[in-house]
Simulated scan of single mutants.
Amino acid sequence: MEVPSIKDFQWKTLAPLPSPRVYCSLVEAAGQVFAIGGCDDNGIPMDCFEVYSPEANQWNSLPPMPTARAGVAVATLGKRIMVIGGVGANQMPLKIVEMYNIDEGKWKKRNSLREASMGISVTVKGKREPFIKGLMTT
């Protein structure tokens, strides 16, 4: 096994997000990075949804999420981004699942979780089905 010299690793400063926040989620899809939700300086969940283009080193705002929230789980299904659970404006966990279609530029509500969840992880199983902490959704 070989490891490159530590001198070869460097941090690069990227363009700042247009909407500063904490507890947002990031996901890569179609060669771009998407920043989803988060909380503002007052701890209020946000509906912000922005995309970063590495080639241009630039963030652009996209249609906001239908539900403001932070600490969501995120998975990509091709050119669709599934946003699951999180914490809402009342600081309570959410059952909400929404999906953004990159090609259409639109959000759609999906089937809700059986119970409200925040701080969960999501991974994609196979080609289409996300596996959510023991729960299958389609």
Results as ranks from 00 to 15, higher is better:
Leu26Asn: 01
Val51Met: 15
Leu135Gly: 04
Gly119Ser: 11
Gly37Thr: 08
Ile81Gly: 02
Arg69Gly: 03
Lys133Tyr: 09
Ser121Arg: 07
Ser25Trp: 01
Ala89Leu: 15
Leu14Lys: 13
Val74Cys: 14
Leu135Trp: 02
Ser121Gly: 09
Arg80Ile: 02
Ile120Pro: 00
Met1Phe: 12
Gly134Trp: 10
Leu77Tyr: 03
Trp107Phe: 05
Ile120Ser: 07
Lys7Leu: 13
Gly43Thr: 03
Gly88Met: 00
Asp41Gly: 15
Leu62Lys: 02
Ser117Arg: 15
Gly31Pro: 04
Ala29Leu: 02
Met82Trp: 08
Lys12Met: 09
Ala116Leu: 06
Asp8Cys: 11
Lys79Asp: 08
Met82Gly: 02
Val51Asp: 01
Pro20Glu: 09
Met46Lys: 14
Val87Ala: 10
Asp41Tyr: 14
Gly43Pro: 06
Thr123Arg: 13
Leu14Met: 10
Gly119Gln: 10
Gly126Lys: 05
Lys125Tyr: 13
Cys24Val: 04
Val27Cys: 13
Ser5Asp: 14
Val97Pro: 01
Lys108Val: 15
Pro63Ala: 06
Ser19Leu: 04
Ala29Tyr: 00
Asp40Ser: 10
Val124Trp: 05
Thr137Arg: 10
Tyr100Ser: 00
Gln91His: 13
Glu2Thr: 06
Leu77Asp: 06
Leu77Thr: 15
Leu94Asn: 01
Ala68Tyr: 00
Val51Ala: 15
Met46Ser: 11
Lys133Val: 09
Met136Leu: 11
Gly105Pro: 06
Asp8Ala: 08
Val33Tyr: 01
Asp41Cys: 15
Gly38Phe: 00
Leu113Ala: 11
Gly86Lys: 06
Ile84Pro: 07
